[in-house]
């Protein structure tokens, strides 16, 4: 049976893992390669490296960080942040990324999704959507969540899938960093609208939140950062919990 994936996100700045609350107030949590190794041992299913400041500061994902993480990691590795052009994507993939995550660049030029899918295959192209609730709908935000893209999230997810995206990485800006749980209605709305996997992100605070987003949110995967980084909850313990809840996971 296909397992629900647990994905660890390494928010990286200047080669170090950081994690902020609602994208602000970053504090250091260690060496990305070391963290990735620990997650691998604990049974993480996939690793995402995001350079959270890359888009704003116009920096590209650092090849040496990717190489250091990829060196001993034989799991899917996705890299995002600052992937603006085909060349940025090629640099990340050549350094060892299996997938690249596009956010602002895809909103600015959706044809980039198709060009990368044609070059590397759809499985290598993840479209990240930062979603903010707006009444009964959600609006996509761009540039690390600093500006509205004036796009409906569900409609944008559909377009991204139609253009060749292989997965959607969906972050609730309202929940990100709050530890109050994933936005299940948002995740379910997007998951029902597309035939590609949806990775839920933003708001993980306790094990029950993961069960909720896999069941009520119909997520295919769930991503978290700080809940794992500071050893508050181990990946192995989380998977045991989900297994006991009847949710298929890789143990």
């Amino acid at each position: 049976m296909l397992a629900k994936r647990i994905i660890a996100c390494l928010d990286v700045r200047d080669g170090q893992v950081v994690k902020g609350v609602k994208f602000e107030g970053l504090r250091s949590a260690g060496d990305p390669a070391e963290l990735a190794r620990r997650y691998d041992v604990e049974g993480i299913d996939e690793v995402v490296i995001l350079d959270v400041t890359a888009t704003l500061e116009a920096r590209q994902a650092r090849a040496h960080t990717i190489q250091a993480v990829a060196r001993e990691l034989f799991l899917p590795l996705c890299v995002g942040g600052g992937i603006r052009t085909e060349d940025d994507a090629a640099a990340a993939i050549d350094a060892g990324a299996d997938k690249v995550s596009l956010n602002s660049a895809a909103l600015a030029d959706p044809s980039l999704i198709t060009r990368l899918a044609e070059r590397y295959g759809s499985q290598a192209v993840v479209v990240a959507i930062d979603a903010k609730r707006d009444g009964e709908r959600w609006t996509a935000y761009t540039r690390s969540g600093s500006a509205s893209a004036a796009r409906d999230v569900v409609e944008w997810a559909r377009e991204a899938a139609a253009r060749g995206a292989g997965e959607i990485l969906l972050t609730s800006m309202d929940r990100d960093g709050t530890r109050s749980g994933f936005d299940c209605p948002l995740t379910a709305a997007v998951s029902d609208a597309v035939a590609i996997p949806v990775i839920a992100s933003g708001g993980a605070g306790e094990f029950a939140h993961f069960a909720e987003v896999f069941q009520a949110g119909r997520a295919d995967a769930a991503l978290a950062a700080s809940i794992f980084h500071f050893n508050t909850h181990g990946v192995a313990d989380l998977k045991q919990f989900l297994h006991a809840e009847g949710i298929p996971v890789r143990l």
């Binding site: 397992a3 629900k4 299913d45 499985q123 295919d220 890789r250």
Partner: peptide
Amino acid sequence: QKVPHVGWNT
């Protein structure tokens, strides 16, 4: 069910 089949399966 979604197609593609992506992830860890037994």
